[in-house]
Amino acid sequence: MKISINHKTTYNFSSNVPKLMQSIRLYPSNCKNQKTISWSIKSDKGMITESHSDALGHKIFNIYNKEIIGSQTIISKGIVETKDTSGVLKGLKEKVNTLCFLRDTELTKACRKIDLLSKKLSKNKSNEILFCHQMNSVVSQSIKYISGSTSIYTSASDSISQGSGVCQDFAHILISLARKNNFPARYISGFLMEENGNAEQATHAWVEIFINDLGWVGFDPSHNKCIDEGYVRVCCGLDSLDSSMIKGVKTNFNGDENLKVDVSISNCQ
């Protein structure tokens, strides 16, 4: 599928920003599941420079900005051609040992309710792929999807306790459950193209679980399925904070910031 994406982030600052540095991981992953036909990242303030590629295969860009008044807009757009590989991640150049993704973070620590989820799973883990599907499906029913019910700092245990969340929270719970069962799992940020889909989920989050015979396999607990050609993979990490597409640090800034993200995504065939 050829997917056209236009991702626009706008920051509104209540006062002058003396200095702002941003690190951007907004380039579609270079793997065999998807081919980047065209891609560009532009900011209306400051110059974008390409920095380095990290061990997880991210192409990292930076923006160094001084004295921003008013607002800043970052636009990433382009066309990505995707393939359905039944969820299996293929050909990504990465160097990090998979066991690293057994580590828990504040956002993915297990809790009693996640322990209970774990007890619902079959005892037999010998068919890993089946077991992973089971985890995915258990998680997909563990909370209700309610947009705006959580924030970026909400942990897996917070959202399962309150019984609701968004794609980020489904992903955290699945990661937590997978790691608890000794499967390396990681958080993926990216885009999702759905016919008649929820516009809010155009920037989407899902999970990759490492399965011995297959490698990393993408599961989407908020849709209870493996990822397919509708998914564009961008960024990965231990949890959502570790996988954010744009990170910024302001120096000597005392004002408020207001963030707005617009994404338009379409099938261009």
């Binding site: 990290d54 061990a55 160097k95 990090v96 040992n97 066991l99 057994l102 580590r103």
Partner: peptide
Amino acid sequence: DGEIIKAKVVPADLIYKNPAYEIKMVGF
């Protein structure tokens, strides 16, 4: 390359699951 782990001299878990092992430094 992680030769010492491949050679099973030091257990993999001890390194990779350890928060002191900095993922961002891998391959640098």
